[in-house]
Amino acid sequence: MNTPPALEVSALEKHYPRFALGPLDLIVPSGSIYGLIGPNGAGKTTLIDQIFGMGSPDAGTIRVCGLDHEHDEVAVKSCAAYVGPDLSFVAWGKITNAIRFTRGFRPTWDDAYCARLMRDFGISANDRIGTLSFGGRTKLALLLALAWHPQVLVLDEPTTGIDAHTKKAVFVELLGIVRDEARTVFISSHQLSDLERFADHVGVLHKGRLVAEGATGELVERHLQAEWEAENAGAFAHVPGLTLQEHEGPRWRGVLDTMTCPLESLQRRGARDVRTQALTLEELFLALTK
């Protein structure tokens, strides 16, 4: 069986007066949870907007489940769901109305699953949407997206403002989704410790470009925090795979991607007393997006 990637972004570019996204290449394999991380303003939401056809790209293509996001827009929207902070359902009044409306145009809507999610997320059909907290509205958006079993679920900051119990319930659902190898979750979040645990792959977006990407555990482990001493200051500027953090006199600190910049290459450049230690995803993120 030859399943196309759930999401395939090729040479994507989108230019604004003060910001440029790309050129960006990104592949999200089907059956995985992919975490997109990046500082505020890195282009995460711009990328997600592009996927869902909000504005045309200036260059490049986006394919969702093998379908072109512009040419096959309707097909894309019937296999991919979006949950983001800007969704508003207030106009529907009660939760039950929002559910009835969404259910009406999603042929795969699953009533039993919807009922279970309402229990697990602690929301009731008769609540008024206008009185929900921010977290409550996020839970409703997740419910409306999960309950029709989309093939691709795109989540923009889905766990902001929800409590630890609901967050756990959300991740249980997400892991349940990818149990079916044909379904995929693409999630943009600032909750790095959650992604470190739940995401199969992570991509780090910084100033519109993907600066690091890989299987979560491997990406974290192949990077090392290094400290060393050296006199020759020029030797460490612009070394591929080396991100310098601090430098004072002969003492240096930086993060190495040992795949492109092995320890020996530091020593070859005159580094002495090299000491290394492991990083968490959060520390790696801070180093790469400074």
Binding site: L175, G176, R197, F198
Partner: peptide
């Protein structure tokens, strides 16, 4: 993965 609440790749 679902039982232990970790990613499939882990």
């Amino acid at each position: 993965a679902e039982e232990m609440l970790v990613s499939v790749i882990t």
